[in-house]
Amino acid sequence: MRHKETSQENIIATLVKFCVPLILSGILQQLYNWADAFIVGNVAGEEALAAIGATGTVSGLFLLAINGFTLGLAVLFAQRYGSGRLAEIRNTLSSFCVILGAAFLMLAGIGILCAYPLLRLLNTTPDTIGMAEDYLKIILAGVPVMAVYNVYTAALRGAGNSRAPFFSILCSSVVNVVLDVILVVFGRMGVRGAAIATVVSQAAMTGYIVWYSRRYDFLRIYPFRRPVDRAAVKAGIHLGFPPMVQSCVNAFGNLILQNFMNGFGTQTVAAITTAYRVDTIIFLPMINIGSGISTIVAQNYGAGKHREIPRVVAAGAVMMTAVSLALISRILFSYWFAASCGNMIIAYAEAASWGVMLLLYVGRVTRKRHVLAWQKR
Results as ranks from 00 to 15, higher is better:
S291W: 01
G292I: 07
I293D: 07
I296A: 01
I296S: 01
V297C: 06
Q299T: 10
N300D: 10
Y301N: 04
Y301G: 00
Y301S: 03
Y301L: 10
G302H: 06
G302F: 03
G302P: 05
G302S: 02
A303N: 05
G304L: 05
K305N: 13
K305M: 07
H306S: 09
H306F: 10
R307H: 12
R307W: 10
E308R: 15
E308L: 11
E308T: 07
I309A: 00
I309D: 04
I309Y: 04
P310Q: 09
V312H: 00
V312Q: 03
V312R: 03
V313K: 12
A315W: 04
A317I: 07
V318F: 00
M319L: 15
M319N: 06
M320I: 15
M320K: 12
M320L: 15
V323L: 06
S324C: 14
S324P: 03
L325P: 04
L325F: 14
A326R: 01
L327R: 02
I328W: 02
I331V: 12
F333L: 14
F333Y: 15
S334P: 00
S334D: 05
S334G: 00
Y335M: 08
Y335I: 11
W336F: 13
A338C: 11
A338W: 04
A338R: 01
C341M: 15
C341A: 14
C341E: 07
G342K: 01
I345F: 13
I346L: 13
A347C: 02
Y348P: 00
E350N: 12
E350D: 14
A351V: 03
A351Y: 00
A351P: 00
A351E: 02
A352K: 03
V356N: 09
L358K: 01
L358G: 02
L359H: 00
L360A: 01
V362F: 04
G363D: 08
G363K: 05
G363R: 01
R364C: 11
R367L: 12
R367W: 04
K368L: 14
R369W: 10
